[in-house]
């Protein structure tokens, strides 16, 4: 049951037939691991906490830097040098005290990924590099947990939802290869991050309330230069070295 305060807090979304009280209770029972608290993670953590997701594990290895603040709206000028998870947890706890926040100031790697995931229901990718996404993909497949990918660069962004055993995985789309040199960080506009992270949040909410995710097996691309969205079906790659999709 929702308390009277919760019923009022979430009333505008409980009114949606796809959510309702039952969906709201599912959100309250939902556990999401948000990896990265930068441009994507700032938006994601805010919307997921506001929507009433019951538990958020917030993971980031960085501290707030002044060059983050054009887009990372979870952090402020007063947070400079603070660990991002700590800065995030403070705001999110104020936003919604019903959401339990666990802030983890660390890098996620194969060696600690499973312990960090624990019993989370969704892996929310808000990272800023391909290698960490490969870690999240392996974790998703090993633990059979959906992986909601989003990435941005300048005016453009893309998102997809990978469901282990049912859809292509991240490595079907981007096969692993040795990085020759660490690429320079791309230019980023805040609103681009906002759009892509919001799309990822919609997918995460759909997963938690039991609606079919619309980007499962599809890559959605957005361009802020042309204001176009395009979707591309992504089939499982029979040659994928990570998910080992069967041929055919």
């Amino acid at each position: 049951m929702l308390t009277e305060e919760e019923a009022r807090r979430y009333s505008r979304q409980v009114a949606l037939p796809e959510i309702g009280v039952e969906g709201q209770l599912r959100l309250a029972a939902g556990r999401v691991m948000v990896v990265g608290l930068g441009g994507l993670g700032s938006i994601a953590a805010y919307y997921l906490a506001a929507a009433g997701v019951g538990y958020l594990k917030l993971i980031d290895r960085d501290r707030v830097a002044v060059e983050n603040l054009n887009r990372q709206i979870l952090h402020s000028t007063f947070d400079l040098e603070r660990p991002k998870p700590e800065s995030a947890a403070e705001k999110l706890s104020r936003l919604n005290p019903h959401c339990r926040i666990e802030a983890v100031h660390t890098a996620i790697e194969d060696s600690n990924a499973a312990a960090l995931l624990a019993d989370c229901d969704v892996i929310f990718d808000a990272t800023d590099n391909r290698e960490t996404r490969q870690v999240l993909n392996r974790l998703s497949l090993r633990r059979q947990v959906p992986f909601v990918y989003g990435g941005i660069s300048g005016w453009e962004g893309m998102a997809s939802t990978f469901i282990p055993g049912r859809t292509a995985c991240f490595s079907c789309l981007f096969p692993p290869h040795a990085e020759t040199a660490k690429p320079a960080p791309p230019p980023v506009l805040g609103p681009t991050a906002g759009i892509v992270a919001s799309i990822q949040c919609l997918e995460t909410i759909r997963l938690l309330v039991g609606c079919v995710p619309q980007l499962a097996g599809r890559l959605l691309r957005f361009s802020g230069l042309t204001m176009e969205f395009r979707k591309l079906q992504i089939d499982r790659n029979p040659g994928c070295p990570v998910c080992g999709a069967p041929a055919g």
């Binding site: 990265g36 808000a126 989003g150 990435g151 893309m158 690429p183 691309r221 040659g239």
Partner: peptide, 24 residues
Amino acid sequence: PQDYASTGVAPNDRVEFIHPNFGG
């Protein structure tokens, strides 16, 4: 990717090269 070398093109085909977005 493993099919790039064996996939030909025909008149009026459309090919798009899409660059990944890995920033966050």
